[in-house]
């Protein structure tokens, strides 16, 4: 059972969360060229090791999180709010 430390709710079982996808993707502007959209939507690294993922605390505070997780060991290195403003505010609090 993976456990994720939600920055808003504290440590919770992963069953409260739902996996989003690759958290390293920056989505292009809505009118960006097709190639950029193609790359952002379809190209993914298959990482053995630490990767950034999005998860939503869907059965909790419903916040989207950026999670650094090791795909080999399930070890979680960091969790922060995916919303940059909230992440900054929480960071300033600590």
């Amino acid at each position: 059972m993976i456990r994720i430390s939600c920055p808003f709710c504290g440590p919770r079982d992963h069953s409260e969360f739902s996996y989003g996808g690759d958290g390293s993707i920056t989505y292009p502007a809505l009118d960006a060229p097709m190639q950029e959209w193609h790359d952002a939507v379809f190209l993914r690294e298959n990482i053995c090791g630490v990767q950034i993922e999005t998860w939503q605390h869907v059965n909790g505070c419903r916040m989207w999180l950026l999670v650094e997780r090791d795909t080999m060991t399930h070890e979680i290195h960091s969790v922060r709010s995916a919303h940059p403003g909230m992440a900054a505010a929480l960071g300033a609090e600590q």
Binding site: S18, G20, Y27, T54, Q56, V58, R62, M63, W64, S81, A82, H83, P84, G85, M86
Partner: peptide, 13 residues
């Protein structure tokens, strides 16, 4: 609902 939350929190904060 999940989709709208994702867009607002991750893409268009």
């Amino acid at each position: 609902m999940v989709w709208l939350e994702e867009l607002l929190q991750t893409r268009w904060p």
